[in-house]
Write a protein that binds this DNA or RNA. Sequence first.
RNA 1: GGCUCGUUGGUCAAGAGGUUAAGACGCUGCCCUCUCACGGCAGAAUCAUGGGUUCGAUUCCCGUACGAGCUGCCA
Length: 484
Amino acid sequence: MKIRTRYAPSPTGRMHVGNLRTALYAYLIAKHEGGDFLLRIEDTDQVRQVEGAVDIINRTLADTGLIPDESPDKDGGVGPYVQSERVKAGIYDRYAKELIEKGEAYYCFCDAERLASLTQVVDGKEISVYDKHCLHLSKEEVEEKLAAGVPHVIRQNNPQEGTTTFHDELYGDIEVENKELDDMILIKSDGYPTYNFANVVDDHLMGITHVVRGNEYISSTPKYNRLYEAFGWEVPAYIHCPLIMGEDKKKLSKRSGHSSYEDLIEQGFLPEAVVNFIALLGWSPDSNEEIFSLEQLVKEFDYKRIGRSPAVFDYTKLRWMNGEYLKAMDAETFYQGAEKYLKEAITKDLDLKHIAELCHTRIEIWPDIPDMVDFFEKVPDYDVSMYTHKKSKTNPEIALKILEEELPLLEAQEDFTNDALFDMLKSYSAEKGIKINTALWPVRTAVSGKAVTPAGASEIMEILGKEESLARVRAAIEKLKAES
RNA sequence: GGCUCGUUGGUCAAGAGGUUAAGACGCUGCCCUCUCACGGCAGAAUCAUGGGUUCGAUUCCCGUACGAGCUGCCA
């Protein structure tokens, strides 16, 4: 049998990384076996709709490469793929009525006030269990209220005795007492189905074989099974994925600042790195490999190896992984991505491609670039203590002396390329009988004003050019004189 | 509160009834080096806890603790 999985998001805003990972796993499970991956929009909550959210979903899936085989834009014969449209087609209503006829569901006319009287506060949390009040309404009473247009919902009728067991591919068999199963609402008073009901109906109608979803749905799954059984439908394979937590070990929230895919992209991460990283949050391959393209993941992904315990989202490791992707880029591709950030810091006419290459092995995310190269634009204010460096055997006094000796040499230097400059400075140090480091440290500091730079003294000067380099060295000499 | 699930270094994690308990990020040190980074090498650091079962348990079972999820006309 061909595997069919689906990603069924609600269009309520940005895509949470937990949802993205669920989508990824659903995609991988299907594609690993050559199956179908579908996208279904679950817009049954008319209040929480966010305009443009469907676009975000489409764009995110396109960017990450999780291309659905069937979706609202690509009918595969089991559409529509948007639940609000399915509501209009009367699909849920029809099935809910079927359940009522079978005694597995019933109309409920209880108003908000009565429902409120049922709630109680335990440990500061509001808990409400419906008391089956309307289950006992006679057929005539129901007809009467319906005819009178009394607002109503349709609830599932769960038994009070016995147990229900369902099987999860990862967690095994899970059994619960039926009395724990509340009579959840199937159809809301506005006529829309709840997630729980629409999900079951649509997954069946769309031929979904493996239901991949977050762990938070485990406790409602027994109720799903009762629905499938009431309809006489085959129960799909369930794969409940463990949750992704923030550093605080709580469910990753917006407060973390990186809970959504869009946040991460804005922060300068690459889509491939994000996908790679979240794939490894809760799943591990057979090998020791860690860097995987989507194609490789499709090949390697065995859902049996998905873990059962929650995973903390480690931002630092994501940064490392992003850096690995950056390093693997060829120079041209890297420059394409880096250009915008280089221009944030540099307006002068300098060799940006050359500067980009200096950053290539030194950054983890794009926004690391500006701070690293800003000195090319202008020497920052710095303290002369920066001339003190133990290993290079320098301090402000020594640096002043060396720079004064090197200045005329630099002025006389015709060839301002990296190699030529280095050779010149090297022979200078040899002549003076000092360490090459002692000759280089003062210049590098003088031309950069930084303790750490993405290049050595000679390479920086090559990029800066003779005129600017000399100006900077002269300025440094003045600064050292003034502050000594 | 009830129900359900989970617990291997700081984090992601492999693993198996008997192992020196992999690997990665991070951290520390060393090497390389015109600083830094890259790269290379080395190191510190883990089986929540109490009972069983067993010749032997971190691995199997039960309890406890801790954590999480659910307990919505949200998904």
